[in-house]
Design a binder for these strands. Structure first.
Lengths: 225, 225
DNA sequence: TACTTCTGACGACATCTGTCGTCAAATACT
DNA sequence: AGTATTTGACGACAGATGTCGTCAGAAGTA
């Protein structure tokens, strides 16, 4: 006699009974979080290229079956981990800015932003994943990466624009300048990582401030001429 | 009867007879150049991670035996290609600076430097290898990479120092600032690459100039206070 | 011409990795 | 209690890759 087909084939948003006191969704989410955590650990410690599905699963203490269900492949997990870290940084930057909007000058505003940023970078796993691991993995990753970079560049230029709303600069040049700025922070961070975290948080923030205020001074000078 | 041992076991600086009208050294050098060229082609087109010993050898139209003799492994070739490209850029920057030393102001000096740099980047293979491919491959590559970065950062800060020889800034902070600067150029270049080379050379140079002059203005302001 | 060295093509081997299937035990449902 | 689902461990398989050895033919040398 032929067994009847199982009623539950795909595990997307399908129902699924409870197990170990948790719903299907809750278990899926739990595992997803375990993988994200393990991904941050592996990618941040060994790098994406030295990580494997097996190593991530070992770290997550889960079987590869769930891995493939949840992320498809390593690249999927990498993007997910990166996105989570970057969104977190974005949120913290937003908080830092919001906290100082009323009447604060650009100087303290920027300083708070840099402090938030370099604070997030103190977790070297996050720093490595956000600054180093995504670029060059694949064209899709590059697009994903540059999307975030663009967001941050826009954020910076918007901040600069609060000083003088009408900079004499085209959108293209503004984007490039913002990009350059983000790249500067990236390089400072990776250098700091490479040196084993020798420089202090203050020094890093100061470097960021110098570049930020420098750009603003430059644009101010261009307005005057 | 046992054959006598070959007199030529290692191929370092050992003798070797002529072949096809060329000395041993000349043939070795010729092959080395073919591999360097092929490496630039493969790494610059497909990226290091998508290149293999086989693909490089196919591109070079040489057998893997010579590859292993000359470079040991792919990473060896990558470093060699990177070093060659970076040395070339260094040389061109040196020329650009030398050409304008007598009495020229910092503005034109910097502009010439940026023009030389972004001109070199017009070859997207060079741009990709120099900006993207080395970082994160291995700890040794990272050290190699940061050595060059440090050189460039020093070069920039030395240039900035010609405006005012005594900046009130520590060596550590100077290094970080220079690094940030280099990172800015890196990010601008990779963004430009990602966009398919949309922005013009002028726009790129202008962005570099803005950042450079900005930093100088900032340091000037710090001196005055 | 006979012998040695150099060259290029080719295959062999081990390893790593992604990916999937199987199976028994744990858990839930009826 | 008996059946169905979920879970985790494990092995299998194919493909890619680094690496090395062999072998026949080309090029030089005595």
């Amino acid at each position: 006699m032929i067994k009847r087909l199982t009623t539950c084939c795909n595990s997307d948003t399908e129902h699924g009974r409870n197990y170990a006191g948790q719903s299907q969704q809750a278990r899926d989410e739990q595992r997803r979080q375990q993988f994200l955590q393990a991904g941050l650990e592996c990618f941040g410690r060994d790098g994406f290229r030295n990580s494997t599905v097996r190593s991530v699963c070992r770290e997550a203490q889960l079987t590869d079956r769930y891995f493939y269900r949840a992320f498809g492949n390593l690249e999927g997990l990498l993007k997910a981990v990166y996105g989570q870290c970057m969104d977190d940084i974005k949120r913290q930057l937003g908080l830092a800015f919001q906290q100082a909007i009323p009447g604060g000058d650009i100087d303290t505003l920027a300083r708070q932003g840099f402090t938030a940023f370099f604070n997030a970078m103190q977790d070297t796993r996050v720093a490595r994943v956000c600054m180093l691991e995504l670029e060059g993995v694949s064209p899709e990753c590059d697009v994903y990466y540059h999307g975030y970079m663009r967001d941050f560049a826009d954020m910076v230029m918007q901040l600069a624009r609060t000083v003088h709303p009408h900079w004499p600069i085209s959108n293209e040049e503004s984007a490039l300048l913002g990009m350059g700025f983000i790249g500067a922070m990236r390089q400072v961070t990776t250098y700091w990582l490479q040196q084993g975290g020798r420089a202090s948080l203050d020094t890093l923030v100061n470097t960021g401030m110098r570049m930020m205020m420098g750009v603003i001074r430059q644009l101010e000078a261009e307005v005057k001429n």
